[in-house]
């Protein structure tokens, strides 16, 4: 506050008469470049929208036919189902991995680190293919003592429906990313918060649930929603396990109706835009709720 030690005289204020200074209006700097850029962008955007609406290439009539066809809605439902299940399971897995990663137990820490490293390294598509081909590697899954006798045996082919395989694949992958998001969120809560909780003698579970988690969520939610948007689009790979999501149905229908390839792609685009917009809206709402209490 007292860093500018120069007296007023030194910077020349006394050189002009005082009343003139008061009367002088400050003219803001003009930005002609901004106006030119605006004009260019508006014209280009108008051109694009006009082209989109009038170019017969897009076949908007067929777009209308396909937009809410049962086959598309079936695919959309699969997309939503797989996304929702994987988002929840992935987050739960991520919390467990993050806590393991932050624990004092070196074995848990290492296992968690290896898991995260592995699943962030392997492309989702490879995970899905390996899972799908699981039955080629292991014909049955058995439930029982590790390395010991098994009580139940499942024929993997019957156990693993396409939906289950897709959900497991996406969740395994999602958990690795969620773990990093959750870990970052927990680490973003300052040491002082944990020390204050400890000094007050707050029980450990209460510390995590009421002090650390609510603050960590502020960092976790935006990052996880981004992750979720990636997940929605990641579901378009599930056709590799013979599950047809929105994009899978679009591809199938495109081959049966080759004349409608473009409108079908536009239908998929429109639905993905709608889904991600809804998620962003939810993000905005949740973040606003979590911000309650911050500096108003």
């Amino acid at each position: 506050m007292s860093t500018s030690a120069e007296p007023a005289e030194a910077i020349g204020i006394t050189e002009s008469p005082h009343r003139d200074l008061a009367a002088q209006r400050v003219i803001p700097l003009r930005h002609p470049g901004r106006w030119i850029a605006t004009a260019v962008v508006v014209v280009l955007a108008a051109q694009f929208v006009h082209g989109l609406a009038t170019n017969p290439f897009y076949q908007w009539g067929r777009f209308g036919y396909w937009f809410a066809r049962p086959v598309i809605l079936r695919g959309l439902w699969v997309t939503l189902e797989v996304t929702a299940l994987s988002a929840v399971l992935g987050l739960l897995g991520g919390v467990v991995l993050a806590l393991a990663r932050l624990s004092h137990n070196p074995v848990l820490r290492t296992v968690s680190w290896v898991y995260i490293w592995l699943f962030r390294s392997v492309p989702l598509i490879v995970v899905l293919l390996i899972l799908f081909n699981f039955s080629a590697l292991y014909r049955t899954l058995s439930l029982g003592v590790p390395f010991g006798p098994s009580f139940f045996r499942f024929d993997e082919n019957k156990l693993a429906t396409e939906l289950v395989v897709a959900t497991i694949g996406l969740s395994l992958n999602e958990a690795a990313y969620a773990a990093e998001v959750v870990r970052g969120g927990i680490l973003s809560v300052g040491r002082g918060q944990r020390e204050a909780s400890a000094a007050l003698g707050l029980p450990r579970w209460y510390q995590f649930r009421r002090i650390v988690l609510p603050q960590a969520l502020r960092a976790i939610v935006p990052a996880y929603v981004n992750q979720l948007i990636g997940l929605i689009k990641g579901t378009s790979l599930v056709f590799y396990v013979s599950l047809l999501d929105l994009f899978g149905q679009v591809q199938t229908m495109s081959s049966t109706y080759p004349g409608d390839v473009v409108p079908l792609l536009l239908v998929a685009t429109a639905w993905y835009v709608i889904l991600t917009s809804l998620v962003s809206l939810a993000q905005y709402w949740i973040e606003r709720r979590l911000r309650a209490g911050e500096r108003g």
Binding site: L244, G248, S255
Partner: peptide, 8 residues
């Protein structure tokens, strides 16, 4: 083997 696009 006709997923996702078939071959009519």
């Amino acid at each position: 083997g006709a997923l996702p696009a078939g071959f009519p």
